[in-house]
Nucleic acid binder design. Sequence first.
DNA 1: TTGAAAGCGTTACCAC
DNA 2: GTGGTAACGCTTTCAA
Lengths: 339, 339
Amino acid sequence: MGKITIFDVAKEAGVSKSTVSRVLNEKGNVNEKTRRKILKVMEKLNYHPNSSARSLVTKKTHTIGLVVPNIIDPFFLQFIKGAEDVGIKNEYNMMLVSSNWQVKDEWRYLRLLEEDRVDGILLISGRNISDSYIEFLESEKTPIVIIDRVLEKNIIPTVNVDNVNGAYITTNYLLENGHRKIAFVMGPNNMQAALNRYEGYKNALYDYNIKLSDELIYHGNFTKESGYQATQKIINDWDDVTAIFYSNDGMALGGLKVFKEKGIIVPDDISIVGCDNIRELSLIDLPLTTLSQPRYKMGYTGMELLIKIIENNDNIYPEKIVFNMEFINGQSVKNISAR
Amino acid sequence: MGKITIFDVAKEAGVSKSTVSRVLNEKGNVNEKTRRKILKVMEKLNYHPNSSARSLVTKKTHTIGLVVPNIIDPFFLQFIKGAEDVGIKNEYNMMLVSSNWQVKDEWRYLRLLEEDRVDGILLISGRNISDSYIEFLESEKTPIVIIDRVLEKNIIPTVNVDNVNGAYITTNYLLENGHRKIAFVMGPNNMQAALNRYEGYKNALYDYNIKLSDELIYHGNFTKESGYQATQKIINDWDDVTAIFYSNDGMALGGLKVFKEKGIIVPDDISIVGCDNIRELSLIDLPLTTLSQPRYKMGYTGMELLIKIIENNDNIYPEKIVFNMEFINGQSVKNISAR
DNA sequence: TTGAAAGCGTTACCAC
DNA sequence: GTGGTAACGCTTTCAA
């Protein structure tokens, strides 16, 4: 570890530590000539301030804890990238912690706070965090921002996406293209996003004066396999369904597998839309019409907000930031109005 | 930030800071009864030691800097995961820094060292690090381990993969399956991995007493596009090439695109092998025969080595760790011995 | 514009 | 076994 301290610089430059500290922190009130000299000495000695000593007195680490559910899933990369870009710009370091979707791992990022290792925490995809832990976090005074989890009582600031609106727009798009009998493949009932997407679907039908039919609702759990099964049921149950709304892309991939096996052509025989714009889609021949979470933007904005809170310049910041989902117009929907 | 200090605990427990510190660090030499009492007080006060103060005196941060070329590329995730698992097990935190493939960003992780923020650095995929920077790192006393870069002068420990051996095995596999005219699509000339794979190909032919033909060597730059172009040239130039060895999977994907367009069936009309086992392959209908870098293992082992060096228990550790590539037997090679 | 000195929360050494 | 005290490297008053 580096041995040159502020004292060495001071001695070499013939001044006191205080003065060196002042130029280090650009506090001004230093004679330009001595300032130059000190800078030169720093350079010569290759001096760099020790961050622990600094943090000990300033109570700032200039480090942010980045908590991700799972480090191995590419889904989270864009959130991280967005956050990172802001972090770099503001000269913050990033401590990476993966929660592994496990409640029992929550202590690992908690400890970052308790030991004063970080100035704040960005919780990415907080969907999996236990309620009791959220409650605990709310009682903490450390700055926290949560991305991708809706909180009822809004004490911790969140960055989210408007799933209701997204599903509404998408459903509406299907309706505008002449589809009337639209099957809907839901996600898990305990996920807010899944419920919201269902709500958007429902609202769109309602506004279009189409009666909602429960029989058109199928259940999945966001996996490809569950999409596969739901799709099999759908084509078994109906011969007049012209479109399927998968409430995530993973399940849509499962659907595509069924269609391929049965020789059903998308979008000629059936129209489909997905939701999430997962990376894998780029490798599929068929450009899927889908909704995209602006993940980069969400990470970016979340980090910006967090840093703002940490640096607390004006104490003015929103508790809730919501992005619209982006509608991605692919080629998996056919206009059947004419028929 | 937490306000409870070791002093508060000492006072509450009616002992001195020294004693509290002793139980904190499990140094022994503490009466069992007072030890229990102190632990109870810590619990009651929810005391957690301040890491900066600790680091300041111990010169250890229990944090490791993880440098990745690019945070957005899923290719690196398994390295990171492997490293993380070891980190967690040994109670190290991980500071994430992406180098963005940019020489100009090298200062960002250098600074982690200079400011004593980390105990060591794990450089993942060091292929892109400039020579001069490597040289500089060698002059540093901080523990560093580099994954995926071959160093001539072995001062910094490295974890690598045996590309020569991998390409040898793969080429040999083609030969055993009756192929004699095997085109080879190279990677960039300035990448060690690309050259090594070429060497393995060459050696295998040599050992099989097959004369190497320069005309069968095509050049790419590891991108899908370059694989596409090389493949077009190959099928243009030859009608008796029965197999193609792409020195990475990205280029193999480009090749597949050509075959699809031209109605060439793999492996019936032509056999192909790739190299790297990229994630995208799982989504392709055709299971590609390829080589896999054991990325998780490399990250895991690199981190293990780094921690060992940091903790320096016995001062015995290898400078060079090499894994074999794993041969993945897909369905893109046909045995043509019989014909 | 500068310097002296206190203090940040620990660990580590040395007496007792 | 235990406590007092110096030391870690810096920032921050306060006085000059």
